[in-house]
Amino acid sequence: MNTIFALANVVIKELYRRKDFYVLFVLTAVLTLLLGSVSFFQDIKVVRYVKEIALLLIWISALVIAIATTARQLPAEREHRTIFPLLAKPVTRGQVILGKFVGCWLACGLALVVFYLFFGVVSGSREHSWPVLNWLQAFWLQWSMLGIVVALVLLGSIVFTAPSSNATICFILVLGILLLGRHLNQVALQQPEPLRSVVYGLYFFIPHLEWYDVRDLIIYDHQLIGWGDCALASLYAGIYAALLLFGAWLLFRRKPLHL
């Protein structure tokens, strides 16, 4: 376990040494504050558009951080040949995979904490209400979703050779699931057989990342989600992440490491 956390620690340090997070955070903050300062029809009570834009930017930034950080982990270790001394420690390949996953996931969590603190301050100061539990649920669900994304990108970094191609493919996959995942069953029902069964099968197979996007519930001040549902969604994310990590380990186990 110590080995895994030591590896994770390196990834977290990398997050705050690199400029990705700072650039994305400053961009999110500047855009949100700029839009928040605009007065529409002299109405200062209007706040939901600011929440909408802030949460959209947080989602985009979190995805960029998760995918970009994870996609370069294993290729960078191979390119700089630091993977060899690492494996000679001795550290098993499974520990490398787990360490990288934990590191990337925790790094995403740290970034999300900062983003949500900013969101909370902006939203609370304009709306004069502090639904902290709703924000916590949104944070936790988004972080759980990022766990699946990080695991998917780690698997991709073993399948694809270049980090750029891996990041691009993972972006398309994740965005595709977020936008279409909820409706794939409707699409399937409109298809003739055997395409219907194939699309419906795909609908059950893909991780339903769209569940974790509860921005509308936050923006429009809806009730809390049931804690049982949150727990089930977390379990679902955990199982998917484990499945993808296991796949990554299976592939990484026998993969030649020389370039």
Partner: peptide, 26 residues
């Protein structure tokens, strides 16, 4: 999947009322 997914989305048809109606103006 659809049944469970509905716990995480807005499923009630409501309209804004009171001061909240100004939220559509921006």
């Amino acid at each position: 999947i659809e049944r469970f997914g509905r716990h995480f989305m807005v499923t009630d048809h409501t309209h804004l009322h009171g001061d909240n109606e100004s939220e559509i103006l921006p």
